[in-house]
């Protein structure tokens, strides 16, 4: 395995993000330029005068990575370097929320840019505030559980569907717990000309509150409960789907994390867990996850 994301970075012990990046870069190889928005990844990987990146890398602002990557791609094209991969690797805050306009523009213009979101479902770098990627009923510091609150009052935004609506030729979800699948998807995205969007489930220890060693296990569990279906959309059509052999109850996933603690302690929590189970069941049907 080629290692293009150097050790010595400052990510929390057991963070899913460096593993995600390492796998992406292993699939893309060294002939790659990466643009990253502001966020955990940028902060832990580039404290001047150090950098964990072994590939050419640029950070400009929180909300403009897709636009910066557009310019990178245009300039590489201009200089006849069409073989160079151009990736964005950024978190859910910069993807689902503040960077949305630039991403829409990049998709719309059809740049050969592969946008990969490591999704930890909140603004972790600033201290676990809600993003539009935060799932229903999740405790964050801006949607805290309380006497009259079960946490986040809104469902997770369906970002892959937004990418599909832009006629992005390759859209996929992935999980850090499925490295073979993730690498294959990055390679497939790179092989299809035009923009791509891949959304990778990447648990955050401090934001989700769990034991550091459980990172991969949690990302596996979210897939096995059908809360995070693994699928591809190629040219707008649902393609390959990761089948789930034995579907696990969502309770198993929820109880392993501090961000759902309130569902097990508060009156009415059981009803909420049922609602979350219904969402998982709906995913199983919608994407045909079960045989």
């Amino acid at each position: 395995m080629q290692n293009l994301f150097a050790p010595g970075h400052r990510a929390c012990a057991g963070c899913a993000m460096p593993t995600t990046v390492k796998l992406i870069l292993d699939a893309a190889g060294p002939n790659t330029v990466v643009a990253s928005p502001t966020g955990c990844l940028e902060v832990v990987s580039t404290p001047y005068p150090e950098s964990a990146w072994e590939v050419a890398w640029i950070h400009s602002l929180f909300e403009n990575a897709a636009a910066v990557a557009s310019g990178v791609e245009a300039a590489l094209k201009r200089f006849g370097k069409k073989d160079t991969n151009v990736l964005v690797i950024g978190g859910d805050g910069s993807t689902f929320d503040i960077g949305m306009g630039c991403i829409s523009g990049m998709f719309d213009r059809g740049h050969n840019v592969k946008y990969i979101c490591y999704d930890n479902e909140a603004y972790m770098n600033t201290g676990v505030q809600r993003s539009s990627s935060t799932p229903y009923f999740t405790h964050t510091t801006t949607t805290p559980a309380g006497k009259v609150s079960f946490g986040n009052p809104r469902p997770k935004k369906d970002m892959p569907a937004i990418a599909v609506a832009h006629r992005v030729p390759y859209v996929a979800t992935a999980s850090v717990a499925y490295p073979v699948d993730l690498r294959r998807k990055v390679k497939r995205a790179l092989a299809i000309p035009g923009p791509a969007y891949i959304q990778v489930n990447a648990p955050c220890i401090t934001g989700w509150t769990f034991e550091a060693g459980n990172t991969i296990e949690l990302s596996r569990l979210v897939v096995e409960t059908c809360l995070w279906p693994l699928y591809e959309y190629v040219d707008g059509k649902l393609g390959e789907v990761k089948k789930i052999r034995s579907k696990k109850p969502v309770e198993e996933y929820l109880k392993a994390q501090g961000r759902y603690r309130h569902l097990f302690r508060k009156e009415g929590g059981a009803e909420i867990i049922k609602q979350i189970q219904a969402m998982a069941d709906a995913n199983a049907v919608k994407y045909g996850l079960l045989d």
């Binding site: 010595g8 404290p47 964990a52």
Partner: peptide, 19 residues
């Protein structure tokens, strides 16, 4: 150490930090 123009950084240089 002299600063680099635009704070450019060499690849893989976090290796100097033994985490």
């Amino acid at each position: 150490m002299k600063l680099t123009v635009a704070a450019l950084v060499e690849p893989g240089s976090t290796r100097i930090t033994k985490t």
